[in-house]
Amino acid sequence: MYNKFVRTSNVLNFLAGFTALETRGAAESCYMLVSGRAGYGKTGTARWWANKPEVNGVYIQAAAGITPHWILAEIVRELGDVPDRRREYCFGQALRKVALARRPIVIDEAEFCLNDPEVLESVRGISDLTEVPVVLVGYDKIMSKLAPYEQLYSRISAIVSFNPLEVVDVRACCTELAEVTIHDDLVEEIHRQSAGRLRLIKEGIGNAERHAKRNKLAEVSLDDMRGQVIINNWSKTGKGRS
């Protein structure tokens, strides 16, 4: 399978959301919120976008137990410096670095930051002073979890929801990622079994491609996959076999 990034409808919505953020009216409203269930491609999109040369974003993946100093230290490290062990000095480091670099900050798994209100407050302190865009990426319930944090919630100027991919997206993934031709009937079956989850779509493409190569097929259809596992969906017994 080719190692390529496919611009699905969710990706296009992400890009449109950031364009809306850039053209915001209030300078302090510099936050974009990206939400969706697991497997829809949020993390892959956030990393791809942050790594684009014209973006050069500061990508941070939050985790359980994150603290205000932890996130400030990560910002400092990503901007090429050694963080101070003292939180107040680390904040100053991060502020200076962000103000100089002018690079957007992407915080993935942002729901972990909500366990301690001061984590995102530390980021807000930097964004308020620098007006650098901040992209928060989290699970589908993160919007309601953020609502009580009015100081931060009011600064969100763009909201993007990652939804199940449509057949047209699955077809694009098959065309761009598979090293064999996948017929439309198999595309539709991959879409059905994956329920539009990008992670499972890639699994289906990989299984179809491997089966085709084992049998020296340049093209693979749904009929070719009869009796083969297309997607291992452990939550629904029997769903993965054609």
Rank of each mutant, 00 (worst) to 15 (best):
residue 1 M to L: 00
residue 125 G to K: 05
residue 165 L to S: 10
residue 10 N to Q: 09
residue 227 G to W: 00
residue 126 I to K: 00
residue 57 G to R: 08
residue 196 G to P: 03
residue 63 A to G: 01
residue 44 G to E: 11
residue 173 C to Y: 05
residue 15 L to E: 15
residue 102 R to S: 00
residue 62 A to I: 04
residue 163 N to P: 00
residue 217 L to M: 09
residue 142 I to R: 14
residue 174 C to E: 03
residue 63 A to Q: 05
residue 151 Q to L: 14
residue 115 N to P: 00
residue 192 R to E: 03
residue 208 A to W: 08
residue 68 P to F: 02
residue 234 W to I: 13
residue 203 E to R: 13
residue 156 I to G: 08
residue 18 F to Q: 13
residue 115 N to V: 08
residue 143 M to R: 13
residue 67 T to G: 02
residue 46 A to E: 08
residue 218 A to I: 01
residue 19 T to C: 05
residue 73 A to T: 01
residue 205 I to A: 14
residue 169 D to T: 04
residue 192 R to K: 07
residue 197 R to S: 03
residue 132 V to A: 02
residue 78 E to A: 12
residue 221 S to E: 14
residue 58 V to H: 09
residue 60 I to L: 07
residue 72 L to T: 01
residue 83 P to W: 05
residue 44 G to N: 09
residue 236 K to D: 13
residue 5 F to E: 10
residue 120 L to G: 04
residue 239 K to W: 11
residue 45 T to I: 07
residue 100 L to Y: 06
residue 49 W to S: 11
residue 114 L to C: 14
residue 64 A to I: 06
residue 219 E to L: 05
residue 225 M to I: 04
residue 191 H to R: 02
residue 5 F to A: 10
residue 29 S to I: 02
residue 235 S to I: 10
residue 47 R to F: 10
residue 152 L to K: 02
residue 202 K to Q: 06
residue 58 V to R: 08
residue 215 N to D: 03
residue 127 S to Y: 00
residue 60 I to V: 12
residue 90 C to P: 02
residue 167 V to R: 11
residue 86 R to P: 01
residue 132 V to S: 02
residue 5 F to D: 10
residue 184 D to T: 07
residue 146 L to I: 10
